[in-house]
Amino acid sequence: MKKSVFLTIFLFTFLFVPISALADETLGGFQFDAKESSHPLDRVNSKGEVTKYEDYSNKNLTFINETKSFQGSGELNPIFVGDLLNKGFLETTQPLVKDVTTNEVAPFVVIGPDGRTRVENTTVFPYSAITYISLEWADGSRGSCTGTLIGIDRVLTNGHCVVNPTTQRGIVSATVYPGVSGSTALFGSYNAIDYYVTSHWINTGAISQDYAVLVLSPSNGRHAGERAGYAGIRQVTNILNQSIGIYGYPGDLIRRDGAINQYGMHGNVASEDSQVAYYTIDTAPGQSGSAMLNTSNQVIGVHSSGFSDRNGNPVRNGGPKMSSFMFEFVANALN
């Protein structure tokens, strides 16, 4: 289908959930000065501090195209997180999800019959490494995204889950819960103490740059990835027609269940360009940041956005794939 058919692009931000238990730490006041950045892949942290691309880039990464997965110890540290849903779902005061023709938040992104199924056992890898992320912004608005553990203390998610490029403001708090099922975080909770996005995301809000890496503190002497495991990342070029799985925490089904559960679906990449992959796999707000998992359960991209036709009907979803540019940024953020 030609690009001209797709009138509207949605950035799926958050499953809008009031949060009663957030991290004690704050991520710092985000103050970004674009003059400090000179390269699209300059790394910007939670305080808005810029690390130059030439300073962090490891040219040896050009000879590496993947990192290893780890299935984790499986040590459980269950905590109940149903209190996140006590007051229902609130609409954020910072909506990034808009139909540009109506200025309305996209109601859903299920394409045709809903193909998503619930993950019954989230103690099994890779589902154990799929994380529910609760978020708070400086103005007090709250929400959630999905992320994937890609290291013992690193989570890959969307850029729009941590920095709003329109306002250039960042979150002040985030808590990560791996392998949630039945509103129980089976591997505990972990506070985000930092995050990284590209300067190009902040400056442009481009879908190709809609990725971020969270840095987590340990909990009870263990890192999240030690318990729940983590997925390796793999650099890709052409992934047309390849099978991928997208799993996360969709708000529509959580509202239906009255509990936080993990859902997902497999499908093929329907089209792509050099940096973004497109598919008709069903998603919903709350699944922002869900990994594109290949058949080896490696992360080859991250779900970000939905596209509608002239009548506002959802027709495809998409997100940045693990191009050489994304791989270099994310791999360096693991160090």
Score class of each variant (00 low, 15 high):
Lys3Thr: 05
Lys3Trp: 12
Leu7Ser: 10
Leu11Met: 10
Phe14Trp: 13
Phe16Asn: 15
Asp24Cys: 04
Asp24Gly: 11
Glu25Asp: 09
Phe30Ile: 02
Ala34Lys: 14
Ala34Leu: 13
Ser37Ile: 12
Lys47Leu: 13
Tyr53Cys: 10
Thr62Tyr: 01
Thr62Val: 04
Phe63Leu: 10
Thr67Phe: 07
Phe70Leu: 00
Gly72Ala: 09
Pro78Tyr: 03
Phe80Ser: 15
Val81Ile: 15
Phe89His: 12
Leu90Cys: 11
Thr93Gly: 11
Thr102Val: 07
Pro107Gly: 03
Pro113Ser: 02
Arg116His: 03
Phe125Lys: 07
Tyr132Thr: 02
Ser141Gly: 07
Arg142Thr: 11
Ser144His: 11
Gly147Val: 00
His160Glu: 01
Cys161Ser: 13
Val162Lys: 09
Arg169Tyr: 13
Val172Tyr: 07
Pro178Ser: 00
Val180Arg: 02
Ser181Arg: 14
Ser181Lys: 12
Thr184Phe: 07
Ala185Ser: 15
Gly188His: 02
Asn191Phe: 00
Asp194Leu: 03
Tyr195Met: 11
Tyr196Asn: 15
Val197Ser: 12
Val197Lys: 07
Val197Gly: 07
Thr204Trp: 06
Gly205Tyr: 06
Tyr211Met: 00
Leu214Tyr: 11
Leu216Arg: 10
Ser219Tyr: 10
Gly221Asp: 03
His223Ser: 09
Tyr230Gln: 08
Tyr230Met: 08
Thr237Tyr: 05
Asn241Ile: 10
Tyr247Asn: 02
Pro250Trp: 05
Gly251Pro: 06
Asp252Leu: 06
Asp252Phe: 06
Asp252Gln: 07
Arg256Val: 10
Tyr263Thr: 00
Tyr263Asp: 06
Met265Gly: 05
Asp273Met: 00
Gln275Val: 09
Val276Gln: 05
Ala284Ile: 09
Pro285Leu: 13
Gly289Ile: 04
Gly289Glu: 06
Gly289Arg: 10
Asn294Thr: 05
Gly301Ile: 04
Ser304Gly: 03
Gly306Phe: 02
Arg310Asp: 13
Asn311His: 15
Gly312Ser: 00
Lys321Leu: 14
Met322His: 07
Met326Leu: 12
Phe327Trp: 06
Phe329Cys: 02
Asn332Trp: 04
Leu334Met: 12
Leu334Tyr: 06
